[in-house]
Design a protein around this nucleic acid. Structure first.
Lengths: 340, 340
DNA sequence: GTAAAAGTGTAGAACGTTATACAAATAATA
DNA sequence: TATTATTTGTATAACGTTCTACACTTTTAC
C-alpha cells in the first residue's frame, strides 16, 4: 500500500529474498496451497505487505490462472448495462476475480476479434452480453474458455451457460396490458432479424406478442403487426416518424427495448399525441430514464442485476469444474407508468 | 480465421514448425523487425494465416509490449461515457491497440486497486477518466506506466498528460446565458468538494460561475450560491427537492452535470414549474437524453469525442517516447434548448 | 526402537513470447 | 583474390509465475 521509493517492479523473487525463503514457498503462500506452516505463512505475508508485492497477471497467465474475467458488451449506449455490469463486477470480486470489459462495435468481425483478444489475455472465463455472433461461433469459443452468455437464447447449448429474462413472458405481460386498454390497433416495434440463430431473444418477444393477441381474439394476427426498426440511432428516428405517419390512432405499441420506446414516445410528444389517449406505449428493460416524470414510460423490468449475479456465479461454477450446461430464466415484471 | 479442429492453442512454435523456420524468425516477422527477407516473410505469414495463430498477450507482456491500453472509468451511469469510450477505442485500434475497460465503483481503494490490476496486466498505457484519486497518487502511477487523464485538471503534472474541456469557459457560457434571461436568483448545483486536489474540474466550473455573476454586477456573489449535492442517485433526489423548496421563483440554475440537471428538471416538472418561466436550467455534458423533446435540456457540450481522440493520441505519443507533459483544453459550447 | 506416514520446504522445468548476440551466407570493396 | 560489410536466419537467455517431484523433518503407529 505504501508508496515505493523505487520504480523497479517487485517480483516474487524479491519477496522470497526478503522473507529468506524460497520462491516456491512464496508462491505456495500466495496460492494458499497445501504444505505451508503458520510461521512460514506469517513471514511471507509480512514481506508481501512490506514490499507491496502484487503478482504479475501476465506471468500467472502463462501457467495458472489470471483471476480475470472478460466481459463483452456490444452497445455501451444501452442504459440497462450499468446495473448489470456493476453487479457482475461486485459478484466476481467477492471471489477475488477482476472484471475486464471489452467493447464491441456491433460489427461481427470486431466482436470475434474481441473475444479472441480476451482469450489471448488468458482470462479465466468469459461473459458475453447480448452477442450478435452465431450459435456455432459461440460454441467454438466456449471450447476454449469457460463461458456464460447473457441475453442470447440457446437452451440447447451444452458447452456454455445462458442467462436470460423470460422474454416470452415479458412480451406477454406487456401485450396483455395493451390489450386491456381496449385499443384495437396494437403494434410491436422489434429489431432486425438475425439470420443465423435458431432462436433469439427478440423472436421470443415477438412470439409472446403475437401469442397474446391471438389469445385475445384479435383478428388478422400476423407478422405484419411487427415493425422492424434499425438499431442505428439516426436512422431510427426517421423510421419511427414514418411508422407513426402510417398509424391510425389511437394506437398501442410494444417496443422491444426502451432504446426504441423513448425515441418513439419522444416523437409522439413532438406531434402532440397524448399518452394514454392517442398512444399507449410499453418498453422493455426499465431503463433508469423510464422513471423520470417527463418520460414516465411503462416498461418491462427484466432484473438486470439478478441476471448479472446469476451469470457471474454460473461462470464461477464452470471455472470450478462444472461442465454441464445451465440455462436460467429470470422472471420479468411490468412496471406501470403513465405511457399506457 | 477458419475453425480449428483441435483445441490446442497454436503457439509461435507451431508456426515455426509449419513454416520450417526458427521461432526467432517468426517473432521477427510478427514484430516486423529488421532482418527478414521477403521470402521468409511470405512463408511465415502464410503459416500464420493457415494455422490461425495469434500471439499470446500474457507471454508478450513478460518481455515486450501487450498492445493493450487500460481505460479506467468510475461511473458507468454517466451517459457521456459511451461516445468517449467508443472514440478512444476507435482511435486506439487504428494503431493496433486494444482497449480494456476497468470499472471502478467510486470508492477510492477500488480505484487504486483497479489501476494496479491494469499495471499487473502489463498494459502499455493507461487512460483514466475523471478519476477521484489525488494528484500525488496519480503521479505515482504515472511513473510506472504511460498515462493520460481525462477530466482531471492538473496542468502542473509533468509525468502524465491531461485532456479537459475548458470548464471555466463552459461555466461562463452557461452562466452568461442565465444572466441574460434577466432572472436575479441564479444558483449553481455542484459536486461535493474534493479534499486533496489543488484544482478540479468542478472548481473551475464554480469559478466560472461566480466570475460571470460578478462581472454582471450581481450583488452578494459568494459560495453560498453554490449548492453541493450528493452523487448518490437516491440521496440526490431528496436533496434536490429540498433545494427547490428553498428557492424563490423564478430561479435560474446551472448544473455541473446533466446527471444532476435532468433529475432537477424532473422535480420541477413534478411541481408543475414551467421551464423558461419559473425555472431556467442549464446542464453540462450535453448527454444524449438532453435532446429528447420531453426533456429538452440546454446543456454545455464538451465534445467528448474530441477529448477521447486527443487522449488516445496523446497516450500513443507517450508510449512512443514523448516524456514531456501535454495539457490540452477543448473548447465547449452551449447547446440551447427549451430549459432556459 | 524402527517403520511408515504426515508435514514442511526447495529445486527447477515449464508456459509463449522477445530480443540480444552471434553464425553463416552473400555482396561490396580493395 | 582477400578482406570487409551487409544481409539473413538461429540459438538461447530472459521475463515472473506455477506446480510437480523430491528431500528432509517430524510425528505417529506398532
Amino acid at each position: 500500500m505504501q508508496i515505493e521509493k523505487t520504480m523497479k517492479k517487485i517480483t516474487i523473487k524479491d519477496v522470497a529474498k526478503d522473507a529468506e525463503v524460497s520462491v516456491a514457498a512464496v508462491s505456495k503462500v500466495i496460492r494458499s496451497a497445501y504444505g505451508v506452516s503458520p510461521s512460514l505463512k506469517e513471514k511471507v505475508e509480512k514481506s508481501i505487505k512490506k514490499l507491496g508485492y502484487r503478482p504479475n497477471t501476465s506471468a500467472r497467465g502463462m501457467r495458472g490462472k489470471t483471476f480475470t474475467i472478460g466481459v463483452l458488451i456490444v452497445n455501451l449506449g444501452n442504459a440497462y448495462l450499468p446495473k448489470l455490469l456493476e453487479k457482475i463486477n461486485a459478484t466476481l470480486s467477492k471471489s477475488g476475480y477482476k472484471m475486464l470489459i471489452g467493447l464491441g462495435q456491433s460489427e461481427l468481425s470486431i466482436e470475434s476479434s474481441l473475444i479472441e483478444s480476451m482469450i489471448d489475455n488468458n482470462v479465466d472465463g468469459l461473459i458475453l452480453v447480448a452477442p450478435h455472433l452465431s450459435d456455432s461461433a459461440l460454441a467454438q469459443y466456449a471450447k476454449q474458455v469457460p463461458m456464460t452468455v447473457i441475453g442470447h437464447i440457446e437452451n440447447t447449448a451444452t458447452s456454455f451457460d445462458t442467462i436470460n429474462g423470460d422474454d416470452f413472458l415479458g412480451a406477454r405481460l406487456a401485450t396483455r396490458a395493451l390489450v386491456e386498454t381496449g385499443i384495437k390497433n396494437i403494434k410491436m416495434i422489434s429489431q432486425p432479424l438475425r439470420e443465423f440463430n435458431k432462436v433469439d431473444l427478440n423472436q421470443e418477444r415477438e412470439r409472446g406478442f403475437l401469442d397474446t393477441l391471438s389469445e385475445a381474439n384479435y383478428s388478422d394476427v400476423t407478422e405484419k403487426l411487427i415493425f422492424r426498426a434499425s438499431n442505428n440511432e439516426d436512422e431510427l428516428k426517421k423510421e419511427l416518424a414514418l411508422f407513426l405517419d402510417e398509424q391510425t390512432l389511437p394506437c398501442a405499441i410494444f417496443c422491444w427495448s426502451d432504446i426504441h420506446a423513448i425515441p418513439l414516445l419522444d416523437e409522439c410528444i413532438k406531434r402532440q399525441l397524448i399518452p394514454q389517449k392517442d398512444v399507449f406505449i410499453i418498453g422493455y428493460d426499465n431503463t433508469p430514464l423510464a422513471s423520470y416524470s417527463m418520460i414516465n414510460l411503462s416498461s418491462i423490468d427484466q432484473q438486470a442485476e439478478q441476471q448479472g449475479e446469476l451469470a457471474a456465479n454460473a461462470l464461477l461454477e464452470r471455472i470450478k469444474g462444472r461442465n454441464t450446461a445451465k440455462h436460467l430464466l429470470v422472471e420479468p415484471s411490468l412496471i406501470s407508468r403513465k405511457s399506457h
